[in-house]
């Protein structure tokens, strides 16, 4: 279905915070293009739009799990997420993968980079 054009639809950044006081925290930010339909909305013809939402999102650091998120329909459309990981080094790999209720899935991977100093 839409899987083909969803490949590049997750934006993912992982930045090692320059601030030493933060104890070498890597900030991971991601933005996913996804309808997050609740199954309760109706279209112009008054037909229910079927539920279509991400149920599971997992993140790994160099292959080790760091975050598992289970979601319901209450996460906003085009989900946005920030989380923090300690102990990551420059060049380490963050992978994020999601699965939705219709069996669609997407993965993205980035290397940890230094946060730009202002």
């Amino acid at each position: 279905m839409v899987a083909a054009n969803m490949v590049a639809n997750m934006k993912l950044r992982a930045r090692l915070k320059a601030d030493a006081a933060s104890g070498a925290v890597t900030e991971v930010k991601l933005l996913i293009s996804h309808v997050m339909e609740t199954g309760r909305r109706k279209d112009d013809l008054n037909q229910l739009i079927p539920a279509h939402f991400i149920q599971l999102l997992t993140a790994t650091l160099n292959g080790k799990p760091v975050l598992e998120a289970q979601w319901g329909t209450g996460v906003a459309k085009n989900p946005y997420l920030t989380f923090h990981v300690k102990g990551a080094k420059l060049g380490d790999i963050i992978n994020v993968t999601w699965h939705d209720n219709l069996g669609q899935t997407e993965s993205a991977e980035v290397a940890v980079v230094q946060e730009l100093t202002p």
Binding site: L61, V66, V75, Y80, F83, H84, V85, G87
Partner: peptide, 17 residues
């Protein structure tokens, strides 16, 4: 709405919508 589970150095912190 959501349940976030942290492991292996992830901080108990999340920002979402």
């Amino acid at each position: 709405i959501a349940n976030f589970m942290f492991s292996h150095g992830a901080e108990p912190f999340v920002v979402t919508r």
